[in-house]
Design a binder for these strands. Structure first.
Lengths: 124, 124
DNA sequence: GCGACTGTTTACCGTTTACTGCACAAGGAC
DNA sequence: GTCCTTGTGCAGTAAACGGTAAACAGTCGC
C-alpha cells in the first residue's frame, strides 16, 4: 500500500537528469548550484538541498514537486503555514487521516472542496 | 474567524509561567535550559526553542502542545512523517482544507475516523 | 546595612546547514 | 598527443541555530 523502500533522492535525481540528457554542469547551472554540490547530492554524500531548490529541480525535470520534496525529506513551504493557521484542528485532522488509502484521502479532499464551495458552516 | 494578531510566543510563555508562580530559574531548571536563555526567549530576543523543549514547557504549564508548538513557529514532530507517508494526497488535502472553519475541520476529521473504522475502501 | 532572591545584559561558543572552489582522473573526438 | 567534456574527492566556509556562563541591577525581608 504505502511505499516501503524509497529510493534515495540522489539516485532518483540522477536517473531523471540523465534521462533528460542534461550534463551535471548544465543542470547545476539551470538550478543555480555548483556542479560539485550536485554531484555530491546525487551520490547522497550530503543531504538533499533546501525545499526551494528541490522545487526548481522538479520543475526543470517535469516531476511532481510535492513528491520530490517529500523524497528530499523536506516540506513544501506552504504546508507549515496551513497547519499554523489552525494549530489544533489541522494536526488533529492529520493524525486522523494517517493510514488512509490514497482513495480515501481523495474522497476526503473532495468533501473539503465541497464544504468550501457550498457555504460556510451549515450542518448538512 | 481566524486569529489575526498572535501574541508572540515569549509573551504567552511569560504570562503563563508567572501565572503558575514559577520563577524564571525554577522553570528553566524544570525545562532543562539555562535561565539566561529562558529570559531571552520570554523577551523574544531569540527564536523560540526547539519543538521538543516547547513541548516540555507546554506540558509543565498544562497548555496545549500543538497550539504552543504552532505559536513557536515549529511543527509537532509527527506531522512531517504523516505528510511524507502520502506525499501527494496529504498536501492536496491540506490545501483543500485551507480556510475551513474549525467546525468544518472537526466534521472532516470525524469523516476520516469513520472511514478508518468502517473498513478499508468501500464506496459508501 | 546584608543576604537572598528576582530578571537581564553581554559576550561568547560549539554544531549543523547548505553549500563553493580547486584540482584531478577518465573517456571520447580529432 | 591534446583538447574538451564528463563526473568526483577533498577542503573549506559563511551564516544560522540553539544555546551557556558570568556578571550585574533591582527589590524584598530583616
Amino acid at each position: 500500500m504505502a511505499k516501503k523502500s524509497r529510493k534515495p533522492f540522489g539516485q532518483v535525481l540522477r536517473e531523471k537528469r540523465v534521462e533528460k540528457k542534461y550534463s551535471l554542469r548544465k543542470f547545476a547551472q539551470l538550478v543555480g548550484i555548483s556542479p560539485t554540490y550536485l554531484s555530491q547530492v546525487e551520490q547522497s554524500n550530503v543531504d538533499p538541498p533546501t525545499a526551494d531548490r528541490v522545487k526548481r529541480m522538479a520543475e526543470i525535470l517535469g516531476e511532481d514537486v510535492d513528491e520530490w520534496t517529500a523524497l528530499a525529506g523536506r516540506l513544501t513551504e506552504d504546508l507549515p503555514d496551513i497547519i499554523h493557521e489552525a494549530p489544533k484542528a489541522v494536526p488533529d485532522l492529520l493524525r486522523a487521516v494517517r493510514g488512509l488509502t490514497a482513495d480515501q484521502l481523495r474522497r476526503l479532499r473532495e468533501d473539503a472542496e465541497r464544504m468550501k464551495r457550498e457555504g460556510k458552516d451549515e450542518e448538512q
